[in-house]
Amino acid sequence: MNVLPCSVNTLKGLYDISGVEVGQHFYWQRGGFQVHAQVLITSWVVIAILLGSAVIAVRNPQTILTNGQNFFEHVLEFIRDLSKTQIGEEYGPWVPFIGTMFLFIFVSNWSGALLPRKIIQLPHGELAAPTNDINTTVALALLTSVAYFYAGLSKKGLGYFGKYIQPTILLPINILEDFTKPLSLSFRLFGNILADELVVVVLVSLVPSVVPIPVMFLGLFTSGIQALIFATLAAAYIGESMEGHH
């Protein structure tokens, strides 16, 4: 049966040729559980960037603005504005959630595009944006689901579920929506960021110099847009579950 190894070799060879190798992970083993180390490492970097810059910029607020504080105030204004337009007057408690959602995704996406991560070589897999791993996007989407359920239930109690049977016929669709919301959120973000990185990588491998630059800029743009979309939709879902149904 020497057919088997050689055919496997061939298949492997074919796979190597056809393989734009996506989804390679650097695994860490933690007591029977596996984690994607590259995602965790990059997410720590993102968190460190966010916390560090926030601490430096906001540690001593001035009445007359410094540059860093001005930037962070602009960001906060933007987040508040976004929350207010989507959630309404009771947006206050949701600012941290929406804001962290936006900032985390935004900094993640841009860090994947901007930070020179090839300097650090992993044994397997590669450092990239945390948001191009399905675990991250699903985690964020599930948190959004939990958030809007919490928002609805804390506002209206069990009466929240009354909106499911507003027209009774729509009950299945309403229930289905609770599944499609996190699904669409997570897959939209995951797909966009992954596709963006793939396009850049493939273009770079084809034409290593000038041509990929516009695509890289487009990637930065879509990264920002995706962060905005995710945060806006999360806020919209929360607002939707909080608004009064009559």
Partner: peptide, 10 residues
């Protein structure tokens, strides 16, 4: 090459 590889990372 697991794209949809859910584990403790989530």
């Amino acid at each position: 090459a697991a794209l949809f590889d859910f584990n403790l990372t989530l």
